[in-house]
Nucleic acid binder design. Structure first.
Lengths: 202, 202, 202, 202
DNA sequence: TATGAATGAGTATTCATTCAT
DNA sequence: GATGAATGAATACTCATTCAT
């Protein structure tokens, strides 16, 4: 069989094309208003082909979210914290990369899709929470605990609540820039860093 | 016309029934998955009656959002700030009432509907921004400016960004409690107050 | 009871208003596209009132046609033929009045309603045939027989066919002016008289 | 694409099936009373298939009329008139074929559909006038002018009016046989020929 | 008697999904 | 594997008709 390898690549490539076309459509039109036929057409494929790769339209949406989760998975790791760096600096440093490309990487789109369609896809909300949201919050909580241990933060703080406070500007800006005030976007980086400085009083 | 008075009451009551049934359905199922027939049935009315009050399903959704906006309109007013109260205390005090009933008053539902359906209803997003979001942010910015004038805050802060920081925990908690982690709700009040204290360093 | 008489008049007047409003609507929009509510509104009445006078929308249409048939009933009578007038002259003279106001009297509208809606209202087509179409043709046939007897026409003619030939320009013009070429109406009188002259070779 | 040929044939056949089933329904029930589902069923197809071929029920009706116009287009041509044949004979000869199959060819149905539904489909009335009615009348007028030139007719006649007179029996019979007196049909051929003889006095 | 709010049967239309080619 | 013609369940919406006032 001369090009079995190629065929596998081809398949992966076709799958990719479908997912990207579907993602565009879901972002622009939402799940309910996206038509399988239009996605197929945008992917340069026939309708039937979509169904060779995904059993149902729901499965296609799950495939898109799965893809985004895998693609954008890049968790902050508390174990990477060097001894000679403050927790605040570490968080800021680590988040610069992550936060600066939150829109271009598709992570903002993913989050907004979870916000808008999550109610109807509890399974995906669960997945997002398990793979992205909760791990991130837990790593932040670990870092906060380390900060308390190092006396960079008072022991009186509630780590769960403070983790949410660190997270809050990210969601605020995703809502602000992506839904409510698209023509005057706020700079997430500025907000995020300022917020960390306030929390760590530094 | 003798029974005109009754008739007006009756129609207002029917309209109310429709809106409340529709609201429940939109919150639970989203717009696309809500069926007009089911809403009518839940309201104890015939399908046709819905269409006597709203031309289309879209118009019904707009009616629901309009209703929520009118119902929940209760803006913070910077002019109410007493001389003998700090801006931080004023914000906290004013927001206690507002924030404590954010779920029960329907304001959280409204916000989440805007998040989930707003893309497909730009007109409603505009309305929400004009009536709720922007006025709130602007009043907060005025208060921040007063705080700067009173030297409760350094003049170096960016009032637009800081207003968003004050807002951020509210959206964070609406997302956290309403979408992602429904079984372990975070106490918005705690988060909000703590955040104000951090910002005002008090 | 002071104004029972008035009440009867009022009732007849209301009925008249309904029929005229309905007629306008049926002519302009056809039966299927005419809405009872719109007819009521055009008549300055409530929807329910229509149903006090006509059981159903179909009955309303029948009422309109009945009204037109009664209103416009003005048959040519062969017994009116004077001895000292040719049949051709008699037909022409009698039809001048009838044909000249065929549009303004509503007879053309009635005929076109029968054409356009008759298939769905066989009862009305029957009525029209019995009250208008067949009597007219039969009187014309009687006149043609008299003309044969008087040797104004050869005995070889087929009176049924010739009656239709006399009728033909009327329908031709109703179709031409009313449906196909509204902006360049043909003068029915000219056509009708010329046609009679051709048939009677005079 | 290998099966493209087959596919094209198949779709043409399906389109034909739809049009014929729709035509039957429109003739029997009229446009408003024809149900898309019933037409689909009569065509041995699913409802959705109709909508793959015609965007709306209105478009389906237009498709049917278009089809009839194309199918039945067979105009009399004045240029075909031989020198050694009278105009009257030419008209009679040419119309024998055309008129004798006016019912079986669908032309009568088409004309009656225009009569009954034309008011609601001005576009189709226009099309019918442009493609069928006006060309026919114009060719007849040309022939009448030739007849005048050849002195087969006096120059005093009005060609436009006389063309309508020639046409009149056709419409008269379509109305008579198709709407009013279906059980005693008149022989169109007899009427048409007799009428031409009267007009040409031959 | 007149009204118009309420009703729900009836219909056009959409679109995810199937499957023969 | 890829295709797109065919399908029909599902749904928004209409409007003749009823009936309480």
């Amino acid at each position: 069989m001369k090009k079995r390898g190629l065929s596998v690549e081809k398949t992966a490539e076709t799958r990719q094309k479908i997912i990207l076309a579907a993602l565009d459509s879901f972002i622009e039109l939402g799940f309910a208003n996206s038509k399988v036929a239009a996605i197929a057409s945008a992917a340069g494929l026939g309708k039937g082909t979509i169904y060779s790769y995904f059993d149902t339209k729901d499965a296609l949406f799950e495939g898109v979210i799965d893809y985004l989760i895998e693609e954008t998975l890049d968790p902050i790791q508390s174990v990477d914290l060097p001894d000679n760096q403050t927790v605040a600096d570490f968080i800021v440093e680590k988040m610069v990369a992550s936060v600066s490309n939150i829109e271009s990487s598709g992570r903002a789109h993913m989050a907004r899709l979870i916000l808008s369609e999550g109610n109807q896809f509890p399974h995906l909300t669960d997945l997002y929470r398990q793979k992205i949201y909760t791990p991130w919050n837990q790593e932040i909580q670990k870092l906060l605990q380390i900060a308390i241990d190092r006396q960079e933060l008072p022991s009186s703080i509630d780590t769960a609540a403070t983790a949410l406070l660190i997270n809050a500007p990210i969601w605020m800006v995703m809502v602000h820039n992506g839904v409510l005030v698209r023509d005057e976007p706020m700079d997430l980086m500025v907000l995020f860093v300022e917020n960390v400085r306030l929390i760590f009083k530094c």
